[in-house]
Design a binder for these strands. Structure first.
Lengths: 159, 159
DNA sequence: GCCATATAGTATCATATGCAACGATATTCG
DNA sequence: CGAATATCGTTGCATATGATACTATATGGC
């Protein structure tokens, strides 16, 4: 319909999966990030670190990096801020003097317990109206995209 | 299994949709961004502007903002760089002195024609092994998540 | 027609991100 | 044991991003 464009060889931005994925992710991440920031003054990396510690107990920063795909610098800065706020505690690693073991303090643990229901409520709101099978498929497909992208990047991200 | 953690009230980061979405999107965006940057010295915002112009012809920056969810500052900077490289041309808007109409130059158009197949090849690689119905559902679900997130943010993003 | 307000686009600033370099400790190999 | 190399975490830097303020123009009420 456009008068002078017509350069279109069948490429449509709106239908392009990487674009759709990025736009959807930005919308969702922005929503969640603002919620954590406004109510708890937590960034998303900080919240992720708290989650890993709540799930796995005492781990090193390197282990958090391996588990979350975050950059080690991001994890380092998140951990430092959480330390300053006494939400996590650090103990020297018993077998490696370069490393430390992080764990939630009681305060950090109770903050996690406070936020988790809110996080789940956001997820529930996002998937409201979707069939359970659709959600499961969505998560599976996202994992697959991540894995394929990792392989294409020549990365060692495992399947 | 962990000895002292056990703070887990059923919240698992790995199963959390916003997290999965963010990680998958970062992996895919990073892959695509590096490809465009390395081969064509284009950022993703620049590439998106080119795509909109290829599809829609002459539009204003404001229209690009409305169509792509990018910030107006991001679009402004992308457009300036593309102007400098003579990939797009600007003409004064005939009815609004504050605005301009952007369009691809011949050079910009041919760059778009060159990149589009590469972009489609990346998409094809990403979805290889998925059933067509799965891909269609994925795109539909992503659009829905974006829409719900927009509503929850109190935003005027239409359905 | 004139003033108040709204909008298009740009510039400025504050923050976030990730790469590269670094110091400290571990490990490997002669 | 000692030197070369690798790894953990931090720091510095260079870039990207988005909120805010600003300039110029447009629009609506009087």
């Amino acid at each position: 319909m456009s008068v002078e464009a017509a350069n279109d060889q069948g490429f449509s931005l709106d239908a392009y999966l990487p674009y759709r994925l990025s736009v959807a992710s930005n919308a969702v991440s922005g929503l969640i990030a603002r919620a954590y920031q406004d109510r708890f003054s937590l960034s998303i990396p900080q919240w992720r670190v708290i989650c890993v510690l709540a799930e796995d107990g005492g781990v090193t920063q390197g282990q958090i990096v391996g588990r979350t795909m975050m950059d080690k610098v991001t994890v380092s800065r998140a951990a430092q801020e959480l330390l300053k706020r006494h939400l996590v505690a650090r103990t020297d690693h018993q077998a490696d003097g370069r490393s430390h073991v992080l764990a939630l303090t009681a305060e950090g643990s109770s903050l996690h317990a406070e936020i988790a229901p809110l996080a789940l409520a956001y997820e529930a709101a996002l998937i409201s109206g979707l069939a359970p099978g659709e959600v499961a498929l969505l998560k599976r497909l996202l994992t697959r995209l991540q894995s394929v992208a990792g392989q294409l990047a020549g990365d060692a991200t495992q399947a």
